[in-house]
Write a protein that binds this DNA or RNA. Structure first.
Lengths: 301, 301
DNA sequence: ACCTTTACGAAAGTATCTTTCAGGCGTGAC
DNA sequence: GTCACGCCTGAAAGATACTTTCGTAAAGGT
């Protein structure tokens, strides 16, 4: 005997709750109990076997299967898959409202989600606000530079180091200075054809501005990576790359988002320079990769 | 209402593609074929039985089950449920937006967009794959640590420095070592109540593993931040925090995405520790902010 | 009150998943 | 160059979960 009221129902995608309501009247009491459980807690039911769901609803396996059939599935197995899908959808739809600041009593999972979200936002903002013309000019200068000096202190110092490491790896003569005195001392060596890069979020870090000024005065091409395109540092910068500034809070200091933003800019610089100098950069990259291989324990599959 | 959240084998909700990428290196060839099929077409695979998937990938049922296990599920049945969930999410959400690799002749604007997108993806993957239980344990250890040593070389060295700077700023006694010899020399000073953190993408960097082992042997609590949760480094790690591994290309070395991923983990550590120790951390943060104020030139608006 | 129809679950039957085991292949040692 | 070792791999046995069958019992009609 055929008992499918729903003609040739396709495996219900997400409108399961609705389907349950529609079909409820044509269900017997025990089947209603099963349908109710399924509609009420898809995630929970997806974790149960036929037997489990039968026990939970105080019915039998046969009834569960019958219910699954009535809902349009070939059997319980497929209903279960649909339930898992539904649960996942509900889960993802439930936006954790990550717009809020991180609070002192946030559970760990929320902190992770919020931090990730904020950093993603910072990246999007930075990419949107980056001036490709300025970037292109900076890349052109770097690609043909005789020598590159990079200045940054504090959190920006690490970004400077990162850029330095990267440029070295593609065969450029680059050096990141974190000691302001040495930076100035070295800046006087620069001349036309050389490039100096200053990284400062505030745009007003004296220790970074000073060497850039010296480099500028000696005829080097100067680049500033800063969150303040109107800050003092830009006075001595031929090209200004703007990083984004996210709202900060006590638990999320500005250094965090500025670092993310700066790193994206640095990555763009690096990647574009690599493109421009591909002929020499590619082998250099390969060589540096090779050089590191033996530093790792044998474990490699 | 008990919810089986995350212990040591959380049934990956949506971070499956990321998990596959993370674990792929430690898989055998046939398992990789299975993983690839699963990551490539979740919806299609969810419709297949063990036997079906085994045939599709040209392997055996046993291999399929083994792969499911490796991905963190009790068996194939559960992997299949997760796949159904993933498929539903992809369906409802916007397309996966698989961006192309960065090419040598991409215009600058494209490079920026692709880099930003890739890094955003890396962040999402990392957040999804982070084990909050492990994170919580690491945070608890750090919050009460007498002393914290951090090991990292190369690109990971900068991340280590970043973590060190941050922890110092909230009043912890933290030091990031980039010199492997000094790291080992200092590691012998550690004892119970101290914390050692090792950061290595490959999970097999001898220069980082060695000091961690020494710290471990001396009774310190050890934390590993690595992209290879099965790598040698985890032997000596009480808590393992897994970073995500993005597909890499010649113009986008692995170091780039691993750094992004590591930094997010570090930020999470820092933020959570700050929460935990708010009473002492807040004034310390304020003080370090104060200390820097005078280093900036007068604002030009 | 009797018969028909329908609901329901126990148990048998079948598909699917899991585990075990032995062959095979690559790898490293001597 | 050969051997031994270990690890991957799939075939088949074993366990579990799902489906079907069938008999009982209750409801409703005559």
């Amino acid at each position: 005997m055929k008992e499918s009221f729903t003609s040739d129902a396709p495996p219900a995608p997400a409108a399961l709750a609705a389907k349950v309501r529609t079909l409820a009247p044509s269900m017997t009491r025990s089947m209603q109990r099963v349908a109710e459980a399924v509609a009420g807690d898809p995630a929970g039911c997806a974790a149960l076997t036929v037997t489990g769901l039968a026990e939970l609803t105080g019915t039998s396996e046969a009834t569960v299967v019958r219910t699954a059939r009535l809902l349009g599935y070939p059997g319980y197995r497929d209903l279960r898959l649909a339930l898992a899908g539904l649960a996942a959808q509900q889960q993802s739809g439930r936006a954790p409202a990550v717009t809020a600041d991180i609070a002192v009593d946030d559970p760990i999972a929320d902190v992770v989600a919020k931090l990730a979200h904020d950093e993603q936002q910072t990246l999007a903002d930075t990419a949107a606000g980056l001036d490709t013309v300025q970037l292109g000019a900076a890349v052109a200068a770097l690609a043909t530079a005789r020598r590159v000096d990079i200045y940054g202190v504090g959190a920006s110092g690490l970004v400077a180091q990162d850029l330095g490491q990267k440029l070295l790896r593609i065969g450029l003569v680059a050096h990141a200075h974190s000691d302001p005195h040495l930076a100035v001392t070295n800046a006087v060596q620069l001349r036309s054809g050389d490039v100096a890069v200053a990284i400062t979020h505030s745009g007003s870090t004296g220790d970074v501005i000073e060497p850039l000024r010296v480099a500028f005065d000696h005829g080097a091409t100067t680049v500033a990576i800063t969150g303040r395109p109107d800050g003092p540092v830009t006075q001595y910068a031929d090209h200004v790359l703007t990083t984004s500034t996210a709202r900060e809070s006590e638990l999320r200091p500005a250094a965090m988002s500025s670092r993310t933003s700066q790193l994206l800019v640095v990555d763009c610089l690096f990647t574009c320079v690599t493109q421009r100098t591909y002929e020499t950069a590619a082998p250099a990259l390969a060589a540096s990769y090779e050089a590191l291989a033996h530093r790792h324990a044998p474990r490699t599959r």
